[in-house]
Design a protein around this nucleic acid. Structure first.
Lengths: 211, 211
DNA sequence: TTGTGATGTGTCAGAGACTGACATAAGTTG
DNA sequence: CAACTTATGTCAGTCTCTGACACATCACAA
């Protein structure tokens, strides 16, 4: 393996400090109104260094969104091979949300603050979904691998993934009441996913027939 | 009404010239590699003026994407009230595509070149879907109005719209062979939509029961 | 036709997000 | 401690986009 080492510890600390400072400023002054210079100054780091940690201001703001997607991807790969594409994906989502709940209060806090930020900035939601595109492709590739189809010529893996991620996104966006703890988030997401599942024909995601 | 007037004619001409010059440069040098100054210079217009026509470089590139969305929105409003949400949306999409086919060869050309640009720049697809978010909300509002539910507290209109637009997007992105004429585009989009329709339970989009 | 107001355009200065190049500082390894 | 690797700061510069102002162009009515 690879020992953490003082260097990597410091790096991880600054990365977290940058995210925290970013979320602080974004939530208090607004996303557009805060400059990267402000964030860098809050962490006593040069702006150039900030850009070595995060390629763009967006990446800093959406750090936890991307981390969640990585978690889903990992969880998907860990699902038993005999599960159908849709239920494997759904299990992967549940794993990710469970992982959030099981982490430290600080991490949950960061996750929720990111969601609050997204709620206040609809354009950021769009940017997030734009970046999600890449993860979706990877998920579709994994699905395609599982069922043994070619993801380049068969649109169905991509469609299955797209339908699910869209549903989850809408579940996250829509909160009937004001949400503050992570439980509410999971509850509404599950409700929307249930609706989707009820709307689909049993076996719709069985890709046995070659299209 | 409002007579076109010399002024508006000129404006429309510059707007088209800017889009054409933009597509030319984007497709030959790449999207990132072309600067707004180049586009403005190609049309003999100051960069400042370009930004008065299009708020961002992105808006210029995706002009026809946004125009299509406007068309879909208009077509949706024109659908008979007794059609179910999903089939009304699907009809609206068909109307839009039909309108493209019925327009002048130059317009079809621009539409297809925009698609080629999107195929070559996956990040632009993301940006386009990000902007689509607004149209989706409007479509959902229209669906909600038709069936008489509150779009703020009922996620189902948004979900129906989201599922359909996601499907169409994936249909557009995936072309088994190389596509060059607009017919191929419509064909694959229809195929993906057919798959979606077959996967869904009849009456799934009947929002009679109050959630 | 000419004057008057509205509207489009060019120029300029500047903010803000990023990038490459280089020197310096710090951690790592033997 | 020395040599190597890697992180950071500084600087100059590009590109997108904005506000302010002056000037040109078009519309409309007397």
């Amino acid at each position: 393996m690879h020992q953490p080492g003082l260097r990597e510890l410091k790096k991880e600390r600054t990365r977290l400090a940058l995210v925290d400072a970013g979320l602080d400023l974004f939530l208090s002054q607004g996303y557009e109104a805060t400059t990267v210079d402000q964030i860098a100054a809050a962490v006593d780091v040069s702006p150039r260094t900030l850009f070595r940690y995060f390629p763009t201001k967006e990446d800093l703001a959406l750090h936890y969104v991307f981390a969640s997607e990585q978690a889903i991807l990992a969880a998907l790969a860990a699902q038993p091979a005999d599960e159908s594409p849709f239920s494997a994906l759904r299990s992967a989502y549940r794993c990710m949300l469970q992982a959030v709940e099981d982490s430290t209060p600080e991490e949950i806090q960061r996750f929720m603050r990111t969601r609050t930020l997204l709620d206040a900035n609809p354009t950021l939601i769009g940017r997030a979904t734009a970046r999600t595109h890449d993860s979706e492709r990877r998920m579709a590739a994994e699905i395609a691998r599982r069922v043994g189809v070619d993801p380049e010529h068969d649109f169905r893996p991509m469609l299955i993934v797209g339908l699910l991620t869209t549903t989850v996104r809408i579940g996250f966006e829509c909160h009937p009441g004001k949400l503050q703890n992570s439980k509410d988030l999971v509850t509404t997401a599950e409700a929307v996913l249930d609706f989707l599942e009820r709307s689909l024909r049993p076996g719709w995601d069985d890709l046995g027939t070659p299209l």
